[in-house]
Design a protein around this nucleic acid. Structure first.
Lengths: 102, 102
DNA sequence: TCGATTAATCGCGATATAAAGATATATGCC
DNA sequence: GGCATATATCTTTATATCGCGATTAATCGA
């Protein structure tokens, strides 16, 4: 069971439309990031997410860090790239917890 | 189905621990507000919620307004008092929507 | 080693949110 | 009417969040 503080971080992480968009895009990488040169099995490259949002690199990097601190996504560094993917288990646990809490 | 904007308001409404506390207290008024003079069937009186949070009257009034705009609670004015209660249907719809979205 | 690429971090200005006190409004009681 | 109570609204101050450009750090290729 996650702590109240962790739950707080998770809800705050979702309280921004761009971060919810990112989570949504990562649900179907092959649909939203079909043009990625690297295998999508690594996850989605940070730069591709930057492009898709239209926001600056630093802004998106921060959004990704917030999602990662909340536990919703993980990153895997390969060479000079950083690939992000969803943590389905954590997302499900969050939904279950929210259902009990609310 | 609620709009994206409504979903945004709902998540933001939850992104504050005091507002989640209030929703929680309203789940079992008889447990948390047993000392209320008025029937709990009206809902819980704003002033009682003020007391329980320990925050100022104006601050709590604002929190209640945010929860109400999000649709999570309703108010019923009786005399000089305003009674708040949960909208279980909306809360369930929110959870369902979040489950689809995430 | 040098230059290019990727992405995290830092610093700043702008905007949003939170909290409180003061005020306004409405109701109830005498 | 006059005063008390309950609560929303307004104003101000403080803090948090957002977004950007610049910098830094790491990796890669020539």
């Amino acid at each position: 069971m996650m702590s109240n503080h962790e739950l707080d971080e998770m809800i705050k992480a979702l309280a921004h439309p761009v971060r919810r968009d990112i989570l949504d895009w990562l649900k179907q990488p092959e649909q939203y990031f079909a043009d990625q040169e690297h295998p999508l099995s690594f996850g989605v490259c940070a730069g591709k997410i930057d492009q898709k949002t239209g926001l600056s690199q630093s802004t998106v990097s921060n959004h990704l860090a917030i999602l990662q601190r909340a536990g919703f996504i993980s990153s895997k560094k390969v060479g000079q790239w950083n690939f992000f993917s969803r943590n389905e288990v954590v997302i499900q646990a969050f939904l279950t917890r929210l259902q009990q809490q609310l």
